[in-house]
Design a protein around this nucleic acid. Structure first.
Length: 192
DNA sequence: AAGTGCGCCAACCGCGTCTCT
DNA sequence: GAGAGACGCGGTTGGCGCACT
């Protein structure tokens, strides 16, 4: 018994999602809808926890999720709402269509919080970040400032399967480089 | 050119709340 | 009303790429 459960635990995958897993998840949700994430994970044949599936879907795969380039307006809103509600990220996220709590949380911690702290140290003239500040910081981490590594949004031109499909075949790397935009266009092509 | 540090983001973890039986 | 399971939220961590020295 203990063996069985430990074996099951060992089968639970962690870490970055592959394209194949994303496809399975999106297809499953397209056909069956969201809900009961643990069952979903099992039924879809994903070796992931329901939690992990939910997080992946909400933060990344949902078609209405907007990514990158937080606008000055959004930034203002985040600051205002944070001053009102504190770290209620999901609540704040609901006021920003297409933004996820995780994204806002990261944005706050990595940029706004730092700026606020700095300006407090200096003389707290204004915690506001200029658009220029924001865009320059983003630019540093590569183009639009969206993630790298296994992040599908880091779709480098020379790793685009259309540009060089051969670089994707025969290697496991293929599944780690794709864009969610491509993903949804694939979905529409598939008629799902 | 190589090494180091920093910034950023995706994903995991723990805990509180909600819902169902 | 109590217990179990699922969900949702906020905090934290791991790892990659870029900038700087």
């Amino acid at each position: 018994m203990a063996e069985e459960s430990s074996q099951q635990e060992a089968e639970v995958r962690k870490g970055p999602w592959t394209m194949e897993e994303d496809l399975i998840l999106v297809n499953y949700i397209a056909n069956h809808g969201e809900g009961v994430w643990n069952n979903l994970a099992r039924s879809a044949g994903l070796k992931r926890t329901g939690k992990s599936c939910r997080l992946r879907w909400l933060n990344y795969l949902r078609p209405d999720v907007r990514r990158g380039n937080i606008t000055p307006e959004e930034q203002l809103l985040i600051i205002e709402l944070h001053s009102r509600w504190g770290n209620r990220w999901s609540k704040i996220a609901r006021q920003l269509p297409g933004r996820t709590d995780n994204e806002i949380k990261n944005y706050w911690r990595t940029r706004i919080q730092k700026k606020v702290k700095t300006s407090e140290d200096i003389d707290c003239s204004s915690p506001m970040i200029t658009d220029h500040d924001a865009s320059t910081t983003r630019a540093r981490s590569g183009g639009d400032g969206i993630a790298r590594q296994t992040n599908p949004h880091d779709m480098h031109p020379n790793t685009n399967p259309e540009a060089d499909p051969h670089s994707y075949s025969n290697t496991g790397e293929f599944e780690n480089f794709w864009s969610v935009e491509d993903f949804w266009s694939m979905q529409s092509l598939n008629g799902d």
